[in-house]
Design a protein around this nucleic acid. Sequence first.
DNA 1: TCTATTTCGGACAAAATAGTCCTTTATTAT
DNA 2: ATAATAAAGGACTATTTTGTCCGAAATAGA
Lengths: 144, 144
Amino acid sequence: MFSKGCEYAIRSVIFIANKSTEGERCTLQEISIGIDSPLAFTAKILQRLTKSDIVTSKKGPNGGFGISTNKINKTTLAEIIHIIDGSAVLNHCVLGLDQCSDTHPCPVHHKFLPIRNEILQLVHYTYLKEIVSDLSILNTYIRT
Amino acid sequence: MFSKGCEYAIRSVIFIANKSTEGERCTLQEISIGIDSPLAFTAKILQRLTKSDIVTSKKGPNGGFGISTNKINKTTLAEIIHIIDGSAVLNHCVLGLDQCSDTHPCPVHHKFLPIRNEILQLVHYTYLKEIVSDLSILNTYIRT
DNA sequence: TCTATTTCGGACAAAATAGTCCTTTATTAT
DNA sequence: ATAATAAAGGACTATTTTGTCCGAAATAGA
């Protein structure tokens, strides 16, 4: 569904948000271990999230990544997905047609439309805040 | 969602099924043009569909690909997807966890569960027969 | 100020996916 | 039989995705 980079991005942000909720910044290494992802590749992803102002970063000793309470409350999955994979990923035709719309639909367009809409709703209305609280409440995991 | 090969596979089979319904076999070239796909690559995909007994092929003059009425009635999208992309594609964790299940869920597992089930239902209960009839009835397209 | 720490950023490398090319094999019609 | 047609199959190439490596820049503490 999403690229590896996007998967790591979402898991990274959840990890950082969780730590930030506890008032702690975290380093790349902690994140990479915490979400079980390749360190250098994760670094690249975090750079993009930093430049896009989803997370904040600080160099040097006691540096690392963080995310403000405001961002935790207001950032949705959709924003992260958009930054890493772009908007096309959620609008790509199931059968790969360049043009696929209500007026020029592929053979499964109508069948997938409600599903696509549910996915769009889900990512646009799921905030980091909720996900982070689910971590402890629902016992969910960001690494195996 | 699916690989390019899988997209071409589904579109190819729909094209062939449509022709077969009209009692005509079709050649690789006709398929490639009909669904707007790279010819040689499509050939590879068709080989796999032939070996998996989804479509039939015949060499030589007046040869080409076809699909039996029985197969048109009984083949689902799930079967084609399974042959080309394998079963993992529909069960892959949204956040990329190797293990993601009801008992060891990623943070969005529960949220995506109903959507995943709808997708599974859709592909398992959508038969070629229905798709082919939609081609003319609903004016759907397998090329742009 | 010096050193250790940590992110930034660019170049590079590996792996997976997507796609091509060409020879062989089967089949049909002349 | 022969020639033409069309799929089968193997080797090869290109592109994209995924991932690494390393030096530079920033920052904090001794």
